[in-house]
Every structure is written in C-alpha cells, then in structure tokens.
Amino acid sequence: MNIDDVRLSADLSKITIDDKKIDSYLTDMQDILKFIEQMNAIDTDNITPMAHPFDLSQRLREDKAVAQIDRQILQSNAKNIENGLFLVPKVIE
C-alpha cells in the first residue's frame, strides 16, 4: 500500500482528503491491512467461500407490482427537481 492507493481509495469513496494528512492515513491503513492479514495464516484450501454469514437461501417474492408511488413525497427531500425529474450536476458522456 502506498500514497497513490490512499488517493485512489479517497477518490473511489468520493471524499476529499487533506494532503498533509495523507502520511498518517497511509500508516493507519497499513496497520488495518496488517491486522486483517493475520487471517491469511488460516488454511482455507478446499473450503467453499460463503457468500453470506447466514446459512440460508434467498426467499423469492411473487411477481406482483404494487403501484403506490407518491412522487411528491419521494422527492420531498431532493435538492433540485424539475417536471418530476431529479436534477444533478451535468453528466456528459
């Protein structure tokens, strides 16, 4: 793990970080990784990875649509709306 990884993590997490603090973040994150790495000592060959801590299977729901959608309520805490659309800063492709 290096400083670029810290910057990438921050970028992927959409957070701004103070350049002055990067070194201390790096130390913190390295410590966390070291802590987690202890688990690598366990032999997990021939063990199927679990996808979920509960040993259960997914319940399936009947395909019935329930149209009880009040757009006004659902948009009541949106910052910016127009003609029913959510407005976000322009995204261009």
């Binding site: 659309l85 959510f86 407005l87 800063p89 322009k90 261009i92």
Partner: peptide
C-alpha cells in the same frame, strides 16, 4: 441531458 444546460435530469 437535452433540455438542461447546467444539469442532467434523472
């Protein structure tokens, strides 16, 4: 994107 200048509608 069409009807907006600074925004995109979702």
């Amino acid at each position: 994107h069409e009807n907006f200048t600074k925004h995109s509608g979702i």
